[in-house]
């Protein structure tokens, strides 16, 4: 029957029913209906709304990817897999993929580690905890315009504060936008800054649920705080960690705002003079909304989707394994 997948939940309602006052047939019919169909009613709104307003447009986009498609004029003829062939032969695509990968490792990886650390700090007994929590999430809520102005002043080549500091301690000024490594480091910094607090709050919510007896027992055994954190706290919030890894991977694969606002040429820019920090999403934007080449952009979107699925899957498996290690 329909309920074979989860035996322990499925068997439960029938057995105890006998112990209770007898039901009218009408009531029991309602109850059976309730048991069988209510779950579907619960998930129905999601699938209806999501289907109409997200899946349909995206399938349409998939259809577009098999055509020459100008954004305004629409269909210019079927090309089959032509766009996909072009994309895989496109050096800019591989370049953007490399950059996205680097940012995923440095930025997304960094943001999760920073978030874990922040959550551990916030999980202590603190006075004014609401204030600290509001504080860490602020970078995420402040308008991107303000953020871009501030970071332009921090990472500026000739007038930037970071370079002033470097010079002060005897290093050369760095033209942050000019090279891949410096640009990736800078953009990763912005990503970590914007997202660490966001994920820290999610981790924190989970850490608050970790039974304290576990920690106390370990402390009595003389374990160090660091060891307690890694061998008790982290495994206890494993599902949340896995969730955050998958979610941040999906977000990280679509990184757009941070490298975009790091580009001195703004939306006119290509992510650096040699596309040294152009991400997949930036390239998609360039193709779709600057060159009006919807067919190509749609192709890129679908390839991105597949990549995201693969990378998220790998990260899911990895994070499950790592987080469960004691």
């Amino acid at each position: 029957m329909s309920v074979t997948e989860l035996p322990r939940a499925a068997e439960a309602p029938e057995a105890p029913a006998a112990r209770r006052r007898p039901r009218s047939p009408w009531r029991s019919r309602i109850s059976r209906f309730d048991l069988r169909y209510t779950p579907y009613l619960f998930i129905l709104p999601f699938f209806v709304i999501f289907g109409v307003f997200a899946v349909y447009p995206l399938l349409y986009t998939g259809w577009i990817s098999f055509h020459e498609w100008a954004i305004i004029e629409g269909d210019q003829g079927w090309t089959g897999l032509g766009n996909y062939q072009d994309l895989f032969a496109d050096a800019y695509f591989w370049n953007a993929l490399l950059n996205t990968g680097l940012l995923l490792v440095l930025g997304t990886g960094g943001e999760l580690l920073a978030a874990l650390w922040l959550a551990a700090v916030l999980n202590r007994k603190l006075s004014g905890s609401a204030f600290w929590r509001a504080g860490v999430v602020l970078p995420h809520v402040i308008s991107v315009v303000a953020v871009s102005l501030v970071f332009a002043q921090l990472f500026g080549y000739q007038t930037g504060i970071f370079n002033d500091v470097l010079e002060l301690v005897g290093f050369d000024r760095i033209n942050w936008q000019a090279n891949r490594w410096s640009a990736i480091i800078a953009v990763s910094t912005i990503i970590i800054w914007r997202w660490a607090g966001y994920f820290a709050l999610i981790f924190l919510a989970a850490m608050q649920g970790v039974p304290h007896e576990l920690n106390e027992a370990a402390m009595l055994d003389g374990a160090s705080k660091r060891r307690i954190f890694w061998s008790i706290t982290v495994p206890s919030i494993r599902p949340t960690i896995v969730f955050c890894v998958v979610m941040s991977t999906i977000i990280g694969m679509q990184t757009f705002a941070e490298p975009q606002l790091f580009d001195v040429q703004g939306t006119e820019g290509t992510g650096g003079s040699d596309r040294q920090f152009q991400t997949l999403m930036m390239y998609l934007y360039e193709k779709g909304f600057r060159e009006f080449n919807a067919g190509y952009a749609a192709t890129l979107a679908w390839v991105m989707f597949l990549l995201i699925a693969v990378v998220s899957g790998i990260n899911y498996a990895l994070s499950r394994r790592i987080a469960s290690k004691d």
Binding site: P57, L58, I64, I71, I250, L284
Partner: peptide, 20 residues
């Protein structure tokens, strides 16, 4: 299905969505 849909870059659905 839900998990997979979370991976869809919705940006590109914009023009069909606008038409809708």
């Amino acid at each position: 299905t839900v998990v997979i849909t979370a991976m869809l870059p919705t940006q590109l659905g914009m023009i069909p969505l606008y038409m809708l």
